[in-house]
Design a protein around this nucleic acid. Structure first.
Length: 419
RNA sequence: GGAGGGAUCGCAUAGUGGUCUAGUGCGGCCGCCUGCUAAGCGGUUACAGGGGGAGACCUCUGUCAUGGGUUCGAAUCCCAUUCCCUCCGCCA
């Protein structure tokens, strides 16, 4: 959420910045509501001041003058009516503010959609095959490690079952990633709830605007996490972190549930896109002046997973039009998948600035006695599982249909080949 | 799920309609004193929003779990909700 004070003082700056995202936002409506809110507040607060003053005097009097009491009764009624108006205006204002996206970082290149994203670097040699590399859905079925039919039997289209060494391989990847980040990159491992309250979704920026993409339990109003970013953001909701706390680095493995409206015929084969997938997520709470640098470090932490697995990847800087709702600046990491012949997005790392912190009310005190400030939050996949699995299977496949395990993973798999 | 008890300033507590502008202790911070430390002394101690001011600041409003209600006036009385504790039931 943007600060209403900032918006009030810099309406044109905000208008220009949000235009880069290819949306027109109701800035004028917001400013009008803000104006209305403040004039109502001035009115009702003056009445409350009067009421407080008279009540104080009345408390000291032996004889309570009925005329004064009657006057106060009138004032009470007006206060109540005005309070309701203020509340209605605030609700409307708040709703509009909660639907405004974040302002892009000045360094973000202008662009209209994903075709304008820029490759900033790449790593690794794309492997040359002396046979035609097969896509993972063929490999997976042939090796008996992915069962598509039974996944559909259980839960419908775009669900699958990982079987035997396939299930084991995914678990190994998760452990490998978690260990790398906690042992070498300084993150603290967390195991959060997979269902959260509505406020958490508002805090992270998923609600109110993106309810369509979320699974929701009506009965108890639980929301299924679409990423660990949601519970991790809310770990410190409504807190003021004492001096010396920042930066905080967290890493969490969670399943992710997404109710995407899939366009028919797109990404239909294999395990690339589903309603449920696993992910290891990196998350940081940092002081505002460090967030630019922390984003670069986070991307490198995610890239390290790719390098250890020996899979070629490239890093994209997202243009303004492709930026996520809460993000000021994002990098995507894409791994090469030789079987499907495409670059797969395995990570997206974002600096959200104080956007989520303001929504979730997460602050820190720079020094003892100093005013609290909003923290900056960053999130990044480190990495998303199904697509790593795809790249790995397709990259390490052999002519006989077997798949060799990368060196770094063997302590976690306990086997060297799937055949 | 059932029955009881509870929620007050960072922590612990006091407060049962107006003197609460929420007291006290502990902790924290600043200073003084003591040739170290401890003790002692003095001061200070939240958050948000509105208005004023160039500014250090001033002023008003709100916040005693949350939301309603009663009242001229609510931390205090009433109702609902949430969370915590104890006991019972159920359960991996």
């Amino acid at each position: 959420m943007l600060s209403i004070q900032f918006l009030r003082e810099n309406p044109d700056l905000v208008r220009q910045a949000l235009k880069k995202r290819q949306f027109s936002e109701p800035i004028d409506d917001i400013l009008a509501l803000d104006e209305r809110r403040r004039s109502l507040l001035a009115e009702v607060e003056a009445l409350k001041a009067r009421r407080n003053e008279v009540s104080r005097e009345l408390g000291k009097m032996e004889e309570k003058p009925p005329k004064l009491i009657e006057e106060m009764r009138q004032i009470g009624g007006r206060i109540k009516a005005l309070d309701e108006k203020v509340r209605a205006v605030e609700d409307e204002l708040n709703d509009l503010l909660l639907r405004l996206p974040n302002i892009p970082h000045p360094s973000v290149p202008l662009g209209k959609d994903e075709s304008d994203n820029r490759v900033v670097r790449s790593w690794g040699e794309v492997r040359k095959f002396d046979f035609k590399p097969r896509p993972h859905w063929e490999l997976g079925e042939a090796l008996g490690i992915i069962d598509f039919e039974r996944g559909v039997k259980l839960s419908g289209t775009r669900f699958y079952v990982l079987r035997a060494l396939g299930a084991h391989l995914q678990r190994a990847l998760i452990s490998f990633m978690l260990d790398l980040h906690i042992r070498e990159h300084g993150y603290t491992e967390m195991y959060p709830p997979f269902m959260v309250k509505r406020e958490c979704m508002v805090g992270s920026g998923n609600l109110p605007k993106f309810a369509d993409n979320l699974y929701h339990d009506e009965e108890d109003d639980f929301w299924f996490v679409p990423t660990a970013e949601v519970p991790l953001t809310n770990l410190h909701r409504d807190e003021i972190l004492p001096p010396g706390t920042l930066p905080l680095y967290y890493v969490a493995y969670t399943p992710c549930f997404r109710r995407e409206k899939m366009s028919a015929g797109k990404d239909t084969r294999g395990i690339k896109r589903g309603h449920q997938f696993d992910k290891v997520e990196l998350y940081k709470f940092v002081a505002p002046e460090n967030s630019d640098e922390e984003l670069e470090k986070m991307v490198d932490n995610a890239e390290e997973v790719c390098r250890r697995l020996g899979i070629p990847y490239r890093v994209l800087e997202l243009c303004s039009g492709d930026l996520g709702f809460a993000s000021t600046k994002s990098y995507d990491i894409e791994m090469w998948a030789p079987g499907c012949g495409e670059w797969l997005e395995v990570s997206s790392c974002s600096n959200c600035g104080d956007f989520q912190a303001r929504r979730a009310n997460i602050r820190f005190r720079p020094q003892s006695g100093a005013k609290p400030q909003f923290v900056h939050t960053l999130n990044g996949s480190g990495l998303a599982l199904p697509r790593v699995l795809i790249s790995l299977l397709e990259s390490y496949q052999q002519g006989d249909g077997s798949v060799i395990m990368p060196e770094a993973l063997r302590p976690y798999t306990g086997f060297e080949v799937i055949k």
